[in-house]
Protein backbone atom coordinates (compact mmCIF):
# COMPACT_ATOMS: atom_id res chain seq x y z
CA UNK A 1 0.00 0.00 0.00
CA UNK A 2 1.03 3.55 -0.59
CA UNK A 3 -0.07 7.07 0.31
CA UNK A 4 1.00 10.27 -1.40
CA UNK A 5 0.45 13.99 -0.92
CA UNK A 6 1.41 16.96 -3.04
CA UNK A 7 1.59 20.61 -1.97
CA UNK A 8 1.54 23.28 -4.68
CA UNK A 9 3.73 25.92 -3.05
CA UNK A 10 2.13 28.85 -4.86
CA UNK A 11 -1.27 27.61 -3.81
CA UNK A 12 -0.07 27.17 -0.21
CA UNK A 13 1.31 30.70 -0.24
CA UNK A 14 -2.01 32.01 -1.52
CA UNK A 15 -4.44 30.00 0.63
CA UNK A 16 -2.65 29.36 3.95
CA UNK A 17 -0.81 31.50 6.44
CA UNK A 18 1.47 29.27 8.49
CA UNK A 19 2.55 32.28 10.55
CA UNK A 20 -0.90 32.96 11.93
CA UNK A 21 -1.34 32.73 15.66
CA UNK A 22 -1.51 29.13 17.03
CA UNK A 23 -1.24 27.55 13.54
CA UNK A 24 2.07 25.75 14.16
CA UNK A 25 1.08 24.55 17.64
CA UNK A 26 -2.09 22.96 16.30
CA UNK A 27 -0.38 20.73 13.76
CA UNK A 28 3.34 20.44 14.52
CA UNK A 29 5.16 18.85 17.48
CA UNK A 30 7.91 20.80 19.24
CA UNK A 31 10.54 18.74 17.36
CA UNK A 32 8.88 19.64 14.05
CA UNK A 33 8.65 23.30 15.03
CA UNK A 34 12.38 23.14 15.70
CA UNK A 35 12.96 21.78 12.13
CA UNK A 36 10.94 24.75 10.86
CA UNK A 37 12.90 27.28 12.95
CA UNK A 38 16.31 25.78 12.17
CA UNK A 39 15.82 25.37 8.43
CA UNK A 40 16.88 28.02 5.97
CA UNK A 41 13.41 28.05 4.41
CA UNK A 42 10.71 27.79 7.10
CA UNK A 43 7.89 28.03 4.54
CA UNK A 44 9.19 25.00 2.61
CA UNK A 45 9.78 23.01 5.79
CA UNK A 46 6.21 23.68 6.95
CA UNK A 47 4.82 22.24 3.72
CA UNK A 48 7.30 19.41 3.49
CA UNK A 49 6.32 18.24 6.98
CA UNK A 50 2.65 18.73 6.13
CA UNK A 51 2.94 16.56 3.00
CA UNK A 52 4.72 13.87 5.05
CA UNK A 53 1.89 13.84 7.60
CA UNK A 54 -0.78 13.70 4.92
CA UNK A 55 0.93 10.91 2.95
CA UNK A 56 1.31 8.92 6.19
CA UNK A 57 -2.36 9.51 7.09
CA UNK A 58 -3.43 8.21 3.66
CA UNK A 59 -1.34 5.07 4.08
CA UNK A 60 -2.65 4.60 7.63
CA UNK A 61 -6.29 4.81 6.53
CA UNK A 62 -5.68 2.25 3.78
CA UNK A 63 -4.49 -0.19 6.40
CA UNK A 64 -6.98 0.80 9.12
CA UNK A 65 -10.05 2.17 7.33
CA UNK A 66 -11.19 5.23 9.28
CA UNK A 67 -11.42 9.02 9.05
CA UNK A 68 -10.17 11.62 11.49
CA UNK A 69 -8.20 14.88 11.64
CA UNK A 70 -5.17 14.61 13.87
CA UNK A 71 -2.12 16.01 12.05
CA UNK A 72 -0.30 16.67 15.33
CA UNK A 73 -0.36 12.94 16.13
CA UNK A 74 1.66 12.07 13.00
CA UNK A 75 5.20 12.77 14.16
CA UNK A 76 7.82 13.39 11.47
CA UNK A 77 11.49 12.67 11.33
CA UNK A 78 13.07 14.39 8.35
CA UNK A 79 16.52 13.87 6.89
CA UNK A 80 17.56 14.92 3.38
CA UNK A 81 14.85 13.58 1.10
CA UNK A 82 13.90 10.67 3.31
CA UNK A 83 12.00 10.54 6.51
CA UNK A 84 9.74 8.56 8.77
CA UNK A 85 6.39 9.25 10.38
CA UNK A 86 5.04 7.68 13.56
CA UNK A 87 1.45 7.63 14.71
CA UNK A 88 0.94 5.75 17.99
CA UNK A 89 2.37 2.28 17.18
CA UNK A 90 2.21 2.80 13.43
CA UNK A 91 5.35 3.75 11.57
CA UNK A 92 6.08 4.35 7.89
CA UNK A 93 8.83 5.56 5.62
CA UNK A 94 8.60 8.70 3.54
CA UNK A 95 10.33 9.77 0.34
CA UNK A 96 9.99 13.41 -0.65
CA UNK A 97 10.77 15.26 -3.85
CA UNK A 98 10.84 19.04 -4.18
CA UNK A 99 10.90 21.52 -7.05
CA UNK A 100 10.51 25.31 -6.86
CA UNK A 101 6.79 24.75 -7.53
CA UNK A 102 5.74 21.79 -5.43
CA UNK A 103 6.63 19.25 -2.76
CA UNK A 104 5.50 15.63 -3.00
CA UNK A 105 5.78 12.98 -0.30
CA UNK A 106 5.09 9.28 -0.56
CA UNK A 107 4.54 6.97 2.41
CA UNK A 108 5.13 3.21 2.45
CA UNK A 109 5.67 0.54 5.05
CA UNK A 110 9.02 -0.37 3.50
CA UNK A 111 11.62 1.98 2.14
CA UNK A 112 11.14 2.31 -1.63
CA UNK A 113 11.89 4.76 -4.39
CA UNK A 114 9.26 7.30 -5.35
CA UNK A 115 6.67 5.90 -7.75
CA UNK A 116 4.30 8.85 -8.17
CA UNK A 117 3.45 10.23 -11.59
CA UNK A 118 3.19 14.01 -11.27
CA UNK A 119 1.12 16.08 -13.69
CA UNK A 120 0.61 19.79 -14.26
CA UNK A 121 -3.07 20.37 -14.94
CA UNK A 122 -4.25 21.71 -18.27
CA UNK A 123 -7.70 22.41 -16.87
CA UNK A 124 -8.84 24.91 -14.27
CA UNK A 125 -11.36 24.41 -11.48
CA UNK A 126 -11.36 21.90 -8.67
CA UNK A 127 -13.79 19.42 -10.30
CA UNK A 128 -12.16 19.56 -13.72
CA UNK A 129 -8.73 19.00 -12.26
CA UNK A 130 -9.94 16.13 -10.13
CA UNK A 131 -11.37 14.40 -13.20
CA UNK A 132 -8.28 15.20 -15.28
CA UNK A 133 -6.18 13.41 -12.65
CA UNK A 134 -8.49 10.37 -12.67
CA UNK A 135 -8.38 10.25 -16.48
CA UNK A 136 -4.60 10.28 -16.42
CA UNK A 137 -4.55 7.49 -13.88
CA UNK A 138 -6.99 5.36 -15.88
CA UNK A 139 -5.16 5.93 -19.14
CA UNK A 140 -2.04 4.66 -17.39
CA UNK A 141 -3.60 1.40 -16.17
CA UNK A 142 -5.88 0.75 -19.15
CA UNK A 143 -9.60 0.56 -19.80
CA UNK A 144 -10.16 -2.65 -17.90
CA UNK A 145 -9.69 -0.89 -14.56
CA UNK A 146 -12.13 1.28 -12.67
CA UNK A 147 -11.44 3.65 -9.82
CA UNK A 148 -13.61 3.07 -6.77
CA UNK A 149 -13.67 4.35 -3.22
CA UNK A 150 -14.65 2.53 -0.06
CA UNK A 151 -16.95 4.01 2.59
CA UNK A 152 -14.06 5.87 4.19
CA UNK A 153 -13.10 7.44 0.87
CA UNK A 154 -10.02 5.25 0.36
CA UNK A 155 -9.49 4.86 -3.42
CA UNK A 156 -8.81 1.55 -5.15
CA UNK A 157 -8.42 0.29 -8.70
CA UNK A 158 -10.29 -2.82 -9.74
CA UNK A 159 -10.82 -4.78 -12.94
CA UNK A 160 -13.28 -7.16 -11.35
CA UNK A 161 -10.57 -9.67 -10.52
CA UNK A 162 -7.73 -7.72 -9.02
CA UNK A 163 -7.65 -4.86 -6.57
CA UNK A 164 -4.80 -2.39 -6.70
CA UNK A 165 -3.97 0.01 -3.93
CA UNK A 166 -3.70 3.55 -5.26
CA UNK A 167 -3.25 7.05 -3.89
CA UNK A 168 -4.21 10.32 -5.58
CA UNK A 169 -3.42 13.87 -4.57
CA UNK A 170 -4.08 17.25 -6.09
CA UNK A 171 -3.44 20.78 -4.92
CA UNK A 172 -3.48 23.94 -6.99
CA UNK A 173 -1.98 23.39 -10.45
CA UNK A 174 -0.47 19.97 -9.76
CA UNK A 175 -1.65 16.46 -9.17
CA UNK A 176 -0.06 13.06 -8.70
CA UNK A 177 -1.03 9.42 -8.52
CA UNK A 178 0.82 6.31 -7.42
CA UNK A 179 -0.22 2.69 -7.80
CA UNK A 180 1.20 0.06 -5.52
CA UNK A 181 2.89 -2.92 -7.19
CA UNK A 182 2.54 -1.40 -10.63
CA UNK A 183 5.32 -1.54 -13.14
CA UNK A 184 5.52 0.55 -16.24
CA UNK A 185 5.79 -2.43 -18.62
CA UNK A 186 2.25 -3.32 -17.68
CA UNK A 187 2.96 -6.32 -15.49
CA UNK A 188 1.08 -6.19 -12.28
CA UNK A 189 2.44 -8.09 -9.35
CA UNK A 190 0.37 -8.48 -6.29
CA UNK A 191 2.22 -9.41 -3.16
CA UNK A 192 1.05 -10.18 0.33
CA UNK A 193 0.44 -6.55 1.00
CA UNK A 194 -2.24 -6.27 -1.65
CA UNK A 195 -5.79 -5.87 -0.43
Amino acid sequence: MVGNDLVDLNEALRTSNWQRDRFLNKIFTLTEQQYIKDGNDPFRMVWRLWSMKEAAYKLYTQIYPCRFYHPLGFECEATNHSGAVKFNNFQCYIETTETPNYILSEARLNRQNLGSTIIKFGSTGQKQRSSELKQRLLSCVGDSYQLTKNKMGVPMLTNGEKLLSVSLTHHGSYGAFVIDHWFRNGNVSIGNEAV
Partner: peptide
Protein backbone atom coordinates in the same frame (compact mmCIF):
# COMPACT_ATOMS: atom_id res chain seq x y z
CA UNK B 1 -4.50 22.16 5.33
CA UNK B 2 -7.35 24.67 5.59
CA UNK B 3 -9.24 22.61 8.18
CA UNK B 4 -6.83 24.00 10.75
CA UNK B 5 -7.77 27.52 9.62
CA UNK B 6 -11.44 26.72 10.17
CA UNK B 7 -10.58 25.39 13.63
CA UNK B 8 -8.61 28.56 14.48
Amino acid sequence: ANLVDIIL
